[in-house]
């Protein structure tokens, strides 16, 4: 599903967000603090803050369906992945380095746009006991970089 180029891309200083819907189609979304590939990209782990994601996590528990967007501010390159088997797992402190290395990469991306560093640090601030991991198998990928190819599927859609 995910080629090596896109697999590398989603682990750079991208902005990450994750969405899921309720039974009556009401969506909810949260920012992700980092992304980890499992089993060579067959599965993806996204780290979110439980305190910000009650509705999102409830929706994932009920449906397992997620939409996950990665955007690199400096290039506008944007990728959306989707999955229908998302699960919520406790955060494993062994994954902390993923989050810790994502922040400086993201800062490097947005500071040239004039974003104050303290504001960006506040936006992505967390406590370890508030973290939770969402794991899913991507079964569809779409380029969302603005332009004529926006919305095109990258691989076989589910």
């Amino acid at each position: 599903m995910l080629d090596s180029d896109n697999a590398a891309f989603i682990q750079t200083g991208v902005s990450i967000s994750l969405a899921a819907c309720s039974g009556d189609r009401m969506p909810s979304m949260s920012r992700g603090l980092g992304c980890k590939l499992i089993d060579g990209g067959r599965q993806i782990a996204i780290f979110v803050k439980r305190s910000q994601s009650a509705e999102l996590l409830e929706n994932i528990r009920n449906s397992g369906r997620v939409a996950n967007v990665f955007n690199l501010p400096s290039s506008n390159r944007t990728l959306q992945l989707k999955g229908d088997d998302a699960q919520i797992r406790p955060f494993d402190p062994a994954d902390l380095p993923v989050i810790e290395s994502h922040l400086p990469q993201f800062l490097e991306e947005v500071i040239p746009f004039g974003m104050p560093e303290n504001m960006v640090r506040a936006l992505l601030a967390y406590t370890v006991d508030d973290l939770v991991t969402v794991v899913y198998s991507p079964n569809a990928a779409f380029t969302q970089t603005p332009g004529p190819k926006a919305g095109d599927p990258l691989g076989t859609a589910a």
Binding site: S17, C21, P27, M29, N68, V69, N71, T78, Q144
Partner: peptide, 17 residues
């Protein structure tokens, strides 16, 4: 940039900038 989330009739979410 803000994010917009929607949902198709089959219940699949979609997220965009």
């Amino acid at each position: 940039p803000g994010h917009i989330a929607t949902c198709d009739r089959a219940g699949m979410p979609n997220l965009a900038y």
